[in-house]
Design a protein around this nucleic acid. Structure first.
Lengths: 156, 156
DNA sequence: TATTGTTATACTCTATAACTATA
DNA sequence: TATAGTTATAGAGTATAACAATA
């Protein structure tokens, strides 16, 4: 007999990767946007935090600076993001969405949301509400990377 | 005003990647197992379907044969999986876990589940139940890759 | 000396295209 | 001819280590 929490963890561990796979497959191959999930997340972050530095994003997303730096190369090359020096601290760079970047982000968001919605329509209204509320609860727990880092630091 | 389904899709789209990131980070760096999420999923599948062919797994997981073939190279090299010819159809191969593979899979499962459980312990009992039930509902929708393929075929 | 970012290197994941062997 | 699998090639995501520039 497992505890409710352990059973919950078990379910999350098995089901989240399945859902993630569907999201990834859907996101890739949106003719207009064609973004990877990490790229998409970066664009969403920049949409809400224009002018963020690389470190800001890395900390928020839990990625290393080299990983992000390389990802940005791709986004800058595709003209979805601009990378400019920060005059106040010349070690830093300032990242922002271009109009194309904003368009791509919104297209990816809308397209993926719509496609997900089509599949989620199979849920009963009660289950739909339950899933929505569950996501809100999980966001509280998994939303902040700082917490993860703090945990790992404490553990080590 | 968005529909409940659209709101649900929105939440799933934002939160699932966060949870996935935590799972990936946790899975990597388990000293014993050190598996990627896709590797982990393959091992789980083989644990439940010993002797499966490459095509079986590819269809279940929604991956192409070359992708899986290469993944198997790594698992076979690490002695977690055996790859043997199928005597009844010599085009096919028969994949199975080695004892090490089973051990690694179980270690990764237990370790990740425990770590997830520690974070999920922050949920109220009601939310914990809600999440568990939501995962069951989502598994119904996203569990089978065949459905996705059928959908894509129908769409095209 | 500490921080920000980049470059170099290496691995995994994933795909498409071209190929081999078998049915 | 169709199916199962591999090899070749390519690109993204990720990490660590080493480095440059700035604070």
């Amino acid at each position: 007999m497992t505890s409710p929490t352990a059973e919950c963890a078990r379910q999350v561990l098995e089901v989240v990767p399945m859902v993630m796979h569907a999201i990834r497959t859907e996101m890739r191959g949106h003719r207009d946007s064609d973004l990877s999930v990490p790229q998409f997340r970066v664009l969403i972050y920049l949409n809400r935090h224009a002018g963020a530095s690389l470190s800001d994003i890395a900390e928020h997303m839990g990625l290393t600076l080299p990983s992000l730096s390389k990802m940005m190369d791709g986004l800058v090359t595709r003209r979805l993001v601009t990378r400019q020096p920060d005059p106040r601290d010349r070690r830093r760079i300032t990242l922002s969405l271009t109009p194309s970047g904003e368009t791509a982000m919104q297209a990816a968001y809308a397209g993926t949301q719509a496609q997900l919605g089509r599949r989620l329509a199979a849920l009963s209204p009660a289950d739909c509400l339950k899933v929505t509320e569950s996501m809100a609860a999980l966001r509280e727990i998994f939303g902040s990377i700082r917490d993860i880092k703090a945990r790992q630091a404490g553990k080590a």
